[in-house]
Computed example of a mutant assay.
Amino acid sequence: MKGPWPAPKVDRYEALSAKYAQDWPAWGHRKIAALMRADGHAVSDSTVERALRRRGLLLPVGFRADRRAWAKAIDWPCRIGCEPTAGVSLDQRGLLT
């Protein structure tokens, strides 16, 4: 009988991956894994992806494309150094508020 295979690395890093994902909600599993590696943890992209999937924290497919489309929809009045249109702001996840 084939069953769920043990995943000790995913078990070990699940809580930590979830903490990073909650601290950086707009980041995908690859950037979170890179940040974890920069902080000294030996994780792979797939380990972080599996850990986040277990907790339901994976971003939907096309999330970045949606953010880019929303950014283009905002009528930014000028280039570098100017304030965006009054009353329009983005939250930490990059969504319009």
Rank of each mutant, 00 (worst) to 15 (best):
A51K: 04
G87N: 11
V48C: 00
S89M: 05
K9Q: 14
T85L: 09
R68I: 06
A73G: 05
P60K: 13
I74S: 14
Q22V: 12
V88I: 02
W70R: 11
L96H: 09
H29S: 15
M36S: 05
R30I: 06
D66V: 00
P8T: 13
I80G: 09
L95R: 15
I80Q: 09
L59T: 00
H29M: 07
H41C: 03
K31H: 10
R68A: 06
P84Q: 11
W76T: 07
G3Q: 11
I32Q: 09
L16Q: 13
I80M: 06
G81I: 07
P84H: 11
R12C: 09
K19V: 09
K72D: 08
A34N: 12
D39G: 08
R37Y: 02
P25M: 08
A71E: 15
T97W: 13
Y13G: 03
V88R: 12
V10Y: 14
K31S: 06
A51G: 01
M36P: 14
V10K: 14
R50E: 01
K31V: 12
R37A: 00
E14V: 05
R64I: 08
D11F: 10
T97A: 04
A34Y: 11
A34I: 04
D11G: 04
S17F: 06
E14F: 04
V43I: 03
K2P: 15
P84V: 03
G62P: 05
P60E: 12
R93E: 14
H41E: 02
A33E: 02
P6I: 09
S46Q: 06
S17W: 04
A34F: 07
R37V: 00
Q22Y: 13
G28D: 05
F63Y: 05
A65T: 13
I80E: 10
K31P: 04
P8R: 14
V43F: 01
G62K: 10
L52T: 06
Q92H: 14
R93D: 13
F63V: 00
M1K: 09
R53D: 05
E14Y: 06
P6N: 14
K9F: 09
K2T: 14
A65G: 10
L90G: 04
P84M: 05
I32G: 01
D39A: 03
D23N: 15
H41P: 08
V43Q: 03
Q22A: 14
G56N: 08
R64C: 05
Q22D: 11
W24R: 10
A33L: 10
G40T: 11
E49F: 07
V61S: 08
A7E: 15
R64V: 01
L96D: 08
